[in-house]
Design a binder for these strands. Structure first.
Length: 424
DNA sequence: AGGCAAATACTG
DNA sequence: CAGTAT
DNA sequence: GCCT
């Protein structure tokens, strides 16, 4: 490789030092900016048809994978180490290596500068963080001249959820200390067991992955003893949310408890939704709570006990880890979701259909075992490199050879011989 | 050229 | 139904 | 943008 000329990475070291970051953290930050930029509609929000337009979603995805790969670098990689990830990491190709080279030589990425010099792009990246503003609305708002949060507050056409979120904008941006999440879980747990002693509360998300700080709180309620066919867990949310308001924990709802399926005016319409008809789904609540004087985002869900393992796995994440564990499941002939694991087959283009019953899942470890993946502790569930094929001991997605479907595993009858209690 | 995870709930 | 969110 |  190169890197032996004048500079030898000095520009990159300077750029990182200027921001008080390690070289690795700086590089990751640059690529994170690209991912965020594409999420916010870079190359397609301007109306100008640039090269590569229409691929924003895929590029956002791509740069997330690049960031995940780069996280594994040492603090101060030399050029050889940077260049090597092109061959070592699945998902890092020529264009990415060229960008790394650009960083190495100049300390900057022209693409990032391009975006940050574009006021509309900057505005889109800011506004898309607001609850209720997504990839479509943000383009329209910015086209109409909205540039700042203050601009947004002037609008009279905001959804109630967006208005609520804006009330607490500053607080919601602050990271949540780990202790506060444990406290909220305990308070919810206390209220829950008063409502029904079979309920237990578990904090998931990054809290369960061991992080000291989180973006929001994700609490799961499990209704112990509830199995397939039970619908009791569907009533829990409508009962507990008013209690949590009375308790002083909740301050605002982003989903409206009055409209939960079994209550309120919309009951008739909601009766046809899958969650009520199939009685196998969860009901989710989104709201704002207050802990230690600061408002925080809270997500609450309730599942019957027979779905505890897949739900726990799903809501513990990380998102990247879920994504690749699902892909591994697909490669093994299964579909994995928070509701369960079931054999499935590809039918037609981009369509996968169930080919057997949900399996009984005793624990998270059981799911890994069925999929022949190495069990990973929550703290180790970061990205695709953590999804390990236990038949080879290698990452499922690192190299072509490491990916081996096991046709026998898709044989449901054989599977059920090992796991006789498949459920429907 | 087609895929890139998957499933569900709420709003307007 | 499209958009947003998880 | 990268992989199959």
């Amino acid at each position: 490789g190169g890197g032996t000329g004048l500079g030898g990475g000095a520009a990159l070291e300077d750029a990182a030092a200027n921001q008080g970051l390690t070289v690795r953290a700086y590089i990751v930050d640059q690529f994170r900016k690209l991912s965020n930029a594409y999420r916010a509609g870079a190359d397609k929000g301007t109306g100008a048809r640039m090269h590569g337009s229409g691929r924003s979603d895929a590029r956002e995805y791509h740069y997330k994978q690049v960031c995940a790969a780069l996280e594994h670098l040492s603090d101060s990689p030399d050029w050889a180490e940077l260049e090597a990830i092109g061959t070592q990491r699945h998902g890092v190709g020529g264009k990415t290596i060229a960008k790394l080279r650009e960083l190495w030589d100049t300390g900057r990425l022209g693409r990032v500068d391009e975006f940050s010099n574009n006021p509309e792009q900057v505005a889109r990246e800011l506004l898309i963080k607001v609850h209720g503003i997504g990839q479509s609305r943000v383009v329209e708002l910015v086209r109409q001249g909205v540039r700042t949060i203050s601009d947004l507050r002037q609008r009279t056409d905001l959804s109630p959820q967006t208005s609520i979120w804006l009330k607490y904008h500053d607080q919601l941006e602050q990271p949540i200390p780990r202790d506060h999440i444990g406290e909220v879980r305990d308070r919810i747990g206390a209220v829950a067991s008063r409502i029904d002693p079979r309920l237990k509360a578990i904090a998931c998300g990054s809290y369960r992955r061991g992080k000291m700080e989180s973006r929001d709180m994700d609490v799961m309620l499990i209704l112990r003893g509830a199995g397939p066919g039970s619908t009791e867990h569907l009533e829990v949310m409508a009962r507990i949310v008013p209690e949590l308001h009375a308790d002083g924990l909740l301050t605002d709802d982003l989903t409206t408890p009055g409209k939960f399926p079994q209550f309120g005016k919309k009951t008739a319409a909601r009766v046809t939704t899958p969650s009520v008809v199939q009685a196998e789904n969860s009901i989710a609540y989104m709201g704002i709570c207050i802990v230690g004087g600061v408002h925080r985002r809270l997500d609450l869900r309730c599942y019957p006990e027979h779905q505890e393992a897949p739900a726990l796995l799903h809501f513990t994440g990380s998102g990247d880890f879920n994504r690749f564990m699902s892909r591994a499941a697909n490669a093994r002939g299964f579909t994995l979701s928070e509701l369960g694991l079931q054999p499935s087959v590809i039918k037609g283009p981009a369509e996968r259909v169930p080919s057997g019953p949900h399996l009984e899942l005793h624990s998270e470890a059981h799911i890994f075992e069925i999929l022949r993946l190495e069990y990973k502790d929550p703290s180790e569930r970061r990205d695709k490199i953590d999804v390990i094929d236990s038949t080879t001991g290698r990452p499922f997605f690192q190299t072509r050879e490491s990916r081996t479907a096991l046709p026998a595993l898709t044989d449901t009858s054989r599977l059920q011989a090992h796991h006789p209690a498949a459920i429907t």
